[in-house]
Write a protein that binds this DNA or RNA. Structure first.
Length: 540
RNA sequence: GCCGGGGUAGCUCAGCUGGUUAGAGCGCCAGACUCAUAAUCUGGAGAUGAGAUUAUCCAGAAGUCGAGGGUUCAAAGCCCUCCCCCGGCACCA
């Protein structure tokens, strides 16, 4: 049995994360908890991605140092993650020393392996802001359609792809001055040389990732520049490149490695080699479709090129987007739901449940307040919460909080037991196949089955005329609560802990074995209370 | 332009290696129950109309998963043409 590394895409912290970004962090946290829950050895890592031009520019606008900005933002993200019950083994940041050193060593090694070359390029430079301008930081007249506000990478009006130098009358987007062309040197990663190896790797990826990536390879990979002329970033290690920094993507992506290294240095000797260099290690990356190529091509490319025996990604689980009333979430347009807003509306754990059950695994999925409310009120509260509550209340009121014995099983009981057991098995299997949305659904369906059983068996009726039957039905229902708790615990860790307390047990059983809570066990009847409550959302 | 994804009940979606009468949840209608947080459970209509019949019912034919063709004993899943929506097309993070 191999070990597992669970990763979430590192959020770029130029602003607060929105639901789309949060989704991957929550999923990674969920998945790592699931794995640990079934007894796998797993570590989970992510962190704040904090270098690069957008943050540098934002800091410039505010008249602050970039690091002040990201210190603040990173702290805020940590705070937010806590509220969403995201507790990865390491949630790091790219400005930490371990990462920086790791990155520099890594690229020096890559150079030794012969995958780095230096080349001259021409780029637009703003003399006023003293900054080389990335494509999107230049606007001007489109040479094809004449649209005045075409960006350096693409004209929004006619859709044509552009080069910044093609723009007529280019302007710096920051200050409006005309940038100048300036010669510079950059160090490049020789990606094309890895085409064949990457093609073999990509062939094993899931379809939604594979098509896209294979296409890029077939169109011909291009060398990827490693360096930038920015100040805010990791100092480039190549001789002669002292005034340059590493391009933010090319270093942040190595956080998956440095984050594990950091864990090792934090007191787990040997961890890095054990995980990253073992052929048995499985790795899962939870990402959005917008950064597929970085995980399917660039990261594996870097890993292969380093020739250091790192294990390549095993699973890349890419989701589509959440749309918000048909529109894509967007920071600039202010479309979408931000993390702190979300927390004002509902408990972080409710969001975990909702986001995991809406997870856009197949196509873009619409997020609407009505759906959200329905998921919380009907699914979580009415189906799951109410089932648990009616069982525990019953045990408290009618059995003095003591779990009754199982007597003679009827056909109905046996059928019920087998239904719940197979839902649990299904839940586990679906998780292993990374069908998380379906796994969460299996959890919900277990709630339907439980309620159906209670309504059909009517223990409140039985207790008056057939005590043995009542015992059996309630015994089975209590076992069901344990199994539900098991499925719930990675989804809503805090709520599950509350349930453990109500049940007066230390953990939920991962096994499929029916009896997990013995007859005669006393639950904490004074703690029994509904786990969830309904929410009401005012129209936005 | 190229690549990919989507278009299935009022809504959100599942089904798509072709195979029984196209499913679920929500919503709607009716009923049951009262242990439980006005929660739960059951049944029904609903992705189609028309003809015939006094009516219920039954039988037959036809239609039905964006549109239209095709392949097949059999298509929501495959092929072709087309329409609509979304995303991407790498130095944006």
């Amino acid at each position: 049995m191999g070990k597992w590394m669970v990763f979430s895409a590192w959020p770029y912290i130029n602003s607060e994360p929105h639901l789309g970004t949060l989704l991957h962090l929550i999923t990674a946290d969920y998945y790592a908890r699931f794995l640990k829950g079934v007894g796998e050895e797993a570590i989970s890592v992510s962190g704040s991605d904090e270098h690069g031009t957008p943050i540098e520019v934002e800091a410039m606008k505010q008249g602050r140092k970039p690091v002040e900005l990201t210190d603040e933002m990173h702290k805020k993200v940590l705070e937010l993650l806590k509220q969403f019950s995201v507790e990865l083994d390491n949630y790091s940041r790219t400005d930490n020393e371990v990462h920086k050193e790791f990155v520099r060593d890594f690229y020096l090694r890559l150079e030794q392996e012969g995958y780095v070359f230096k080349q001259q390029t021409i780029q637009l430079y703003c003399e006023h802001d003293k900054i080389f301008l990335p494509d999107r930081f230049v606007v001007g007249k489109c040479p094809f359609c004449g649209y005045e506000r075409a960006r350096g990478d693409q004209c929004e009006n006619c859709g044509r792809l552009l080069e910044p130098t093609m723009l007529i009358d280019p302007k710096c987007v920051l200050c409006g001055n005309t940038p100048v062309k300036r010669q510079t040197y950059h160090w490049f990663f020789d990606l094309p040389r890895l085409s064949d190896k990457l093609r073999a790797f990509v062939a094993g990826l899931p379809e939604n990732v594979r098509f896209f990536s294979m296409n890029m390879i077939n169109e011909g990979l291009k060398p990827r520049s490693i360096t930038r002329d920015n100040k805010w970033g990791i100092k480039s290690p190549f001789p002669g490149s002292e005034d340059k920094t590493i391009y933010v993507w090319m270093e942040a992506i190595l956080g998956y490695l440095s984050g594990v290294k950091e864990l090792e240095l934090g007191g787990r000797p040997g961890l890095f080699e054990e995980y990253w260099k073992s052929p048995d290690t499985k790795s899962v990356y939870f990402i959005g479709k917008d950064n597929i190529p970085f995980h399917s091509i660039i990261l594996p490319g870097l890993l292969i090129a380093s020739n250091a025996g790192y294990s390549l990604p095993t699973y890349i689980s890419s989701t589509e987007f959440f749309l918000f009333g048909q529109l894509k979430f967007s920071k600039s347009q202010h479309v979408g739901v931000w993390a702190s807003e979300a927390l004002q509306i509902a408990d972080g754990e409710y969001w975990r449940y909702a986001l995991l059950s809406l997870r856009p695994e197949r196509g873009d999925s619409n997020f609407s307040w009505a759906d959200f409310q329905k998921i919380i009120n009907n699914d979580l509260n009415d189906t799951i919460g109410n089932f648990i509550n009616r069982v525990l209340k019953f045990v408290s009121e009618k059995f003095d909080g003591v779990v009754p014995e199982q007597r003679q099983l009827t056909t109905d009981d046996k059928e019920f037991i087998s239904k719940i057991t197979s839902k649990k098995r299904e839940y586990i299997d679906l998780n292993y196949s990374l069908k998380i949305k379906d796994a969460v659904k299996a959890f919900l369906e277990s709630g339907y089955i439980g309620n159906e059983y209670l309504s059909g068996q009517k223990p409140w009726d039985l207790i008056k005329r057939d005590y043995d039957r009542a015992c059996t039905v309630i015994y089975n229902s209590v076992q069901t609560v344990n199994h539900l708790g098991f499925m719930m615990s990675p989804i809503m860790p805090v709520k599950s802990a509350g349930l453990l307390k109500q049940l007066n047990i230390s953990k939920f059983t991962a096994e499929l074995k029916w009896e997990a809570i013995n007859p005669g066990h006393k639950i904490n009847r004074n703690d029994v209370s509904p786990l969830f409550s309904k929410i009401k959302i005012k129209k936005a």
